[in-house]
């Protein structure tokens, strides 16, 4: 299982802060496809995905127990 985390505007869209999904072995790009299917519009704001607290590339592959976070454009400072 993969733990998924949602923040800020994306959390408002998903209606939940986190969930688990059976996505081990998928790539980050495949995770995006899964998420767009479940939460239409999730990709529109230009979010990035971080895997285990590091920004990930589209071809990076998810491993069992990984945490993937959807990071909308940040606005700290």
């Amino acid at each position: 299982m993969i733990k998924l985390l949602y923040f800020a505007g994306i959390r408002d869209l998903t209606g939940r802060p986190s969930e688990e999904a059976d996505l081990s072995g998928r790539t980050v790009e495949e995770l995006w496809k899964w998420a767009e299917d479940k939460y239409p519009g999730i990709r529109e704001g230009g979010a990035r995905i971080a895997v285990n607290e590091e920004y990930a590339l589209p071809d990076d592959r998810l491993g069992e127990g990984d945490t993937a976070a959807f990071i909308p454009p940040v606005s700290g400072g």
Binding site: P73, S75, G76, G77
Partner: peptide
């Protein structure tokens, strides 16, 4: 440091105005 924080550190600001509120996603 502040430029890099604004690019990459996962922190989000929600502004609450007299007329509404919104997550700010793009400076």
């Amino acid at each position: 440091c502040i430029e890099r924080i604004k690019q990459d550190v996962p922190i989000w600001k929600k502004e609450i105005w007299e007329t509404g509120e919104e997550w700010i996603g793009d400076q």
